[in-house]
Design a protein around this nucleic acid. Structure first.
Lengths: 337, 337
DNA sequence: GGAACCGATGTGACCGTGCACAACCGAGGA
DNA sequence: TCCTCGGTTGTGCACGGTCACATCGGTTCC
């Protein structure tokens, strides 16, 4: 004849109720901050909770409410600095609001894989999803899914009507291209990101706009894959046709690789060729020469994503954020001729 | 008079049972691959599942089995390359085994915060925890908690009796220090990681052992904080007392900052001072000069962590892994005098 | 003075699954 | 023929919460 609490089980709401000499429902009310509970009763229940070291069973709660207090993060980026910082911020912001976070890394961006990833998160009953999958394709798949789960993407597509938010990539790209122009560089190449990426497109458009506005010649952009290795390769190749005086690389990693390639080929950065990047990763300030780039506040981006998603989940009006202003970080990899 | 499945609810195991004309228990058996089910019955159930697009409710399952099929990742590292790669690998390996992953980033490593983080994961009923919190202190707190949840740490403490695994840091540090010695560098400084970090200690010991074995003078190590900014600062300071010909920095970020500092002070790397790092982050090959360092297989580490943890959860014998052999990546930041 | 109402609490059902146990059936051995 | 046994299936309950509704005592208002 042992009581439930003696059988080695975790204490349940009913064990607490027994100890506090109230009904299990009263305990539930205390847990959920129900308004009409006498302070005295509440205190007794809280005591019992403390004595038994009771913790609510989230699975049971999820079962009956069909809300898991969990957010999903769908990521299609391979451990780069930016997305990683955002994810950390998302996680922190979510925890602060009482949500836990489960991440799902996409290894491919085929529609089937995206679909099954979203379904998997659905199966886990996440209350909402933050998507860090900056490929245009992913975006379309998601919109087509008409999923029942609310979601937010960290990258906005071209249209302003999208549910998404992002630093203003285009403005940043424009800013840094104009910086190169102001330095007197007129033959400016662009080492772009992969075709499918939303951010790659925005940065390229910012670059093109700036050049056009200044009546400067544009060159067909080189398509890269974001990696330093590719930048290195591109640098070696480009050095053979030195018909340019500056390169805007779509991210810092490629910019650093690019400088390496130029070095290999005997081109001097910044004197012969100025190089600028995008993102302001932690090493950007310390490479040789220190990289002029555009700083992005990835953490703030993550926090905003959570705020937006939670508003959507709770049916509140979404807070409106202005685009995150990009900041130019002028260092030494670009100088006037 | 509507059936449950018409009320807009998700189909349950009983809806499937009704359609397949079996009991709900039979459906449950099919879902769990129970051996004694007639193939014909099983087929009928599977049909019904497909027709209704039924998905098991994980919350209900977690409630009754008190297993969540979820692994927790406790991380105390701020978005560095290594841990991030490991986490991605952990996530992938866990998903492959049918587990989902929830991450929890520690902002402080005070015993209270660690305790509450572990409790939080416990509340979420994770089946096991992977700890990427390389501080000695965290290790002690965890051991003291006698938590009921199985866990694995990605960094082993000094004792070999610990549940943990790691690349062989000491061997890697030794390897690269010996490389410097072989190059004829005899006055070798060490820019170490923070006092509390297990990996910082191992790398330092590897360094000290190698020097001692070669009968070379050791210098009191400089304590850094892993960041490139600190490396930069240290480089400028060290340049004032050039009584050394090489520096082994405990990670690549600090090594890169260090080279920057030396450059600022007019010291030539590698001619005047050779610099080596640890980790082999993606930019290491592309900075100027390309950084000689020790390569670590962070992904493999993550996979092994999951294998070990799952074995522990399932009560199987843990697979025994040899220490992950570190690999020297010889580049140009260290040369013979 | 009684009805209506409100705050504080209790009662029972229900969420969707897995487990223990029972029941049934056909085969095989005594 | 009867009993045993193992494969196959069904019945009822438990898991730990929340929700809808009932209850009860005390005010308020007419």
């Amino acid at each position: 004849m042992t009581s439930p609490s003696e059988r080695g089980r975790m204490p349940s709401i009913r064990d607490v109720a027994r100890l506090a000499e109230v009904s299990h429902q009263t305990v539930s009310r205390v847990l959920n901050d129900h308004p009409s509970i006498r302070p005295e009763t509440k205190a007794r229940v809280l005591d019992a909770i403390a004595v038994l070291d009771y913790r609510p069973n989230l699975a049971a709660r999820a079962l009956v409410t069909s809300k898991s207090q969990t957010l999903g993060v769908l990521s299609a980026t391979i451990g780069e600095f930016g997305p990683t910082s955002s994810i950390a911020a998302i996680e922190e912001a979510a925890r602060a609001e009482g949500y836990s976070v489960t991440t799902l890394n996409l290894t491919s961006t085929s529609p089937e894989d995206i679909g099954s990833a979203v379904r998997q998160l659905g199966r886990e009953h996440v209350d909402g999803i933050v998507v860090l999958a900056p490929q245009v394709r992913v975006f379309h798949v998601l919109r087509g899914m008409a999923s029942t789960v609310p979601f937010v993407t960290l990258q906005s597509a071209s249209g302003a009507d999208e549910i998404g938010l992002s630093a203003d990539q285009m403005a940043g790209a424009r800013l840094i291209t104009e910086h190169l122009i102001a330095l007197g560089r007129t033959e400016i190449l662009h080492l772009a990101g992969p075709q499918d990426w939303i951010e790659a497109e925005s940065r390229m458009r910012g670059y093109l706009d700036a050049l056009r506005e200044a009546d400067l010649p544009t060159f067909p952009p080189i398509r890269g894959d974001w990696t330093a290795d590719f930048g290195h390769f591109a640098g070696q190749e480009l050095a053979r046709r030195p018909d340019f005086t500056a390169v805007f690389a779509a991210n810092d990693l490629m910019a650093i690789g690019l400088m390496h390639g130029f070095r290999d080929a005997g081109l001097r950065v910044p004197e012969d060729v100025s190089v600028v990047g995008f993102d302001d990763i932690p090493v950007a300030a310390h490479v040789a020469p220190p990289l002029t780039t555009v700083h992005q506040d990835f953490s703030e981006l993550g926090r905003r994503a959570v705020a937006l998603l939670l508003a959507q989940i709770r049916g509140e009006v979404a807070p409106s954020f202005g685009a995150l202003a990009p900041v130019l970080r002028i260092r030494e990899s670009a100088v006037s001729r």
